[in-house]
Design a binder for these strands. Sequence first.
DNA 1: TTGTGTTTTATTGCCTCC
DNA 2: GGAGGCAATAAAACACAA
Length: 318
Amino acid sequence: MAGGRVYPSNNNNNNTSAAGSNNLSVLFQSQRVASPSGPLFNIPGSCPSSFLGSRSMVSFEDVNGANRGSRSFFRALDQEENGDEDVDEYFHHPEKKRRLTVDQVQFLEKSFEVENKLEPERKIQLAKEVGLQPRQVAIWFQNRRARWKTKQLEKDFDALQASFNSLKADYDNLLKEKDKLKEEVVQLTDKLLVKEKEKGNSEEPQQKLVVAEAEQESKVSINSAKSDIFDSDSPHYTDGVVHSSLLEAADSSYAFEPEQSDLSQDEEDNLSKGLLHPPPIPYIFPKLEDDGDYSDPPATSCNFGFPFEDHAFWSWAY
DNA sequence: TTGTGTTTTATTGCCTCC
DNA sequence: GGAGGCAATAAAACACAA
């Protein structure tokens, strides 16, 4: 007996709604008493807990009126438990556990939909209405809650998995796009170099000046742009717009040797540091959501309500 | 018919709350 | 300390393929 808990009689009360009522069942429903022929039934407080095991299960009278066994007795002590062969003989056709009827289950289901927990009064009321012991109603609700929880967990898992798959697909697409743009930058850089060579030496000083100015103007932007492109897995845009011109400028700065720059050594160092070792970008997706060229990803497909810094989630997800 | 997997009913032990 | 909830589990009932 759980924690010394004394359960009320397990005798099923279905006969209250059955056409043929079972007098013995009614007789023994409130407590387990000695049967007419002598064997002891469970008298609360007088028997060990093992006595109330499932082997002492009683029958459920068929609610539809079928007299499924005229003796709805509690099953008494097992033979191995008491060695009393007379008892076993007496109960040689012990009633088995019966399932609730469809009507009973439907009734309980509806009640469960209204409220999945049982107050004592409601439990008693339901038991009366459905023709069961209050204890059985309580057990049914308990098992029903367990089933509901299992189903809910499955649903949650499926939803989470779908979200993860969607997010992963988004991420993979972004990676591909990043690589594509990287390649584009390289190609444009090459083109620019070729053009520079073709222009000859006469324009070189002027070109140097233009390039230096461009470098200075875009220094900050270059840092962040290059950070995204070369040193993080973040997308290739920084403030919502794909800065192709910025990227060109950034790569044109790579196209010229340091000695061609008018920047001071410190500035160049800083620039280089910025380009090669940008500060880590803590969040990727907030930028995505600001992006104007990319339709805002639905919350459910990008962060799904999870904070991006939720490392537990991401470590699980990957 | 039988073996096997699933579902349903019920018990047990532990835990929390009042 | 009792009542009730929950997780784990047992066992009967049921479904179904071979």
